[in-house]
Design a protein around this nucleic acid. Structure first.
Lengths: 175, 175
DNA sequence: GCAATTACGTAGCACTTGCTACAAAAAAAG
DNA sequence: CTTTTTTTGTAGCAAGTGCTACGTAATTGC
């Protein structure tokens, strides 16, 4: 019963669901295994080590998020930066996307603490995001860096329940 | 031997040092106690519960950070926003301040996962920061929200080793 | 100086952590 | 069918988690 290849993808998918619902940094083997309908024993068998699992899971999550991002806001060049930011902030606040933001913040905190795996995954996601933005931002790749920086800042404000600050900043951009 | 008041402050100071060096979210009682020259037993005795300790520690860290922020960049109104941002980013990247950024990102990730204590502490720090910025930003309180959003965004980029994105964004502000 | 309170050390409990030894099924290879 | 290889369950280990029971020392109030 070689659960190989195809099954490993669905396995990662189940693990991703669990992490999106319960957090990445606090995830431990036994609860993850239960969520995926298997045992901690088997997770180690598949991924060798927990770090290995996390590493593959980060890749899976990044791909999943990029995919959803593309479908939520299809590529079309916006006329106004303010409108683009408004749409993105609304998306980030939506129930379906908020879990990704939470694991995103987990990735960042682990990266800041020195985890190379998290830093690398974060780096990849940032680049994906920059490309994604370059296709939509009125100024293209040129405007993407600043726009992304503002977006990341708003994620922090929102996470702290400071939507008023986010909104004040976004309306300042309009001016 | 009532180690009251004054000693509790130095105790919190030792705990803060340990957390700044080794991370907030991964901190556990025994290592913290060792760093403060006491025992897990006594930490619970002083703070009742770990959550209580974290809560007081967050307040202590916030005050400590606000204090250092004030002394690192004394209040004076900047003529150019770009110059202010440049100075702040340089400060955040300095060895003496980077640890605060790391615990800051820990606070945010815990807040995003639903910890009320972390959310409240983060909220307080944001407000301190906004006041701090209002005294220095050329546009005063009006410019503080957007500036803070950009700064928080750069913290994320820097944490992921993406200083190039940060720098690109900051030079865009100049334009 | 005596009683009551406060401060602290020692030991441990119940539980979770990542991971492993061992063996039995199950599948593949011949 | 038999042998080898792959997959999986059961049990457990050593370390770490927050926290507590219990006793003793020190300090205070009177």
């Amino acid at each position: 019963m070689p659960r190989s290849k195809r099954d490993k993808t669905t396995l990662l998918s189940d693990l991703a669901d669990h992490v999106l619902a319960h957090g990445l940094n606090t995830a431990s083997l036994r609860p993850m295994a239960a969520a995926a309908g298997t045992s901690d024993r088997m997770l180690i068998y598949y991924f060798e080590t927990k770090d290995g699992l996390i590493s593959e899971l980060l890749d899976h999550l990044a791909a999943q998020m990029a995919h959803r991002l593309d479908h939520a806001i299809p590529p079309r060049r916006y006329a106004s930066e303010a409108q683009l930011l408004t749409d993105i902030v609304a998306l980030m606040r939506s129930d379906s996307f908020a879990p990704y933001t939470r694991v995103w913040l987990d990735i960042i905190s682990s990266a800041a603490q020195g985890s190379e795996a998290h830093r690398a995954a974060g780096h990849g996601i940032i680049n994906l995001y920059l490309e994604w933005l370059a296709k939509r931002h009125p100024k293209g790749a040129e405007g993407a860096a600043l726009a992304l920086t503002v977006i990341e800042g708003t994620l922090i404000m929102d996470a702290l329940g400071q939507r008023d600050v986010t909104d004040a900043a976004c309306s300042d951009i309009r001016a």
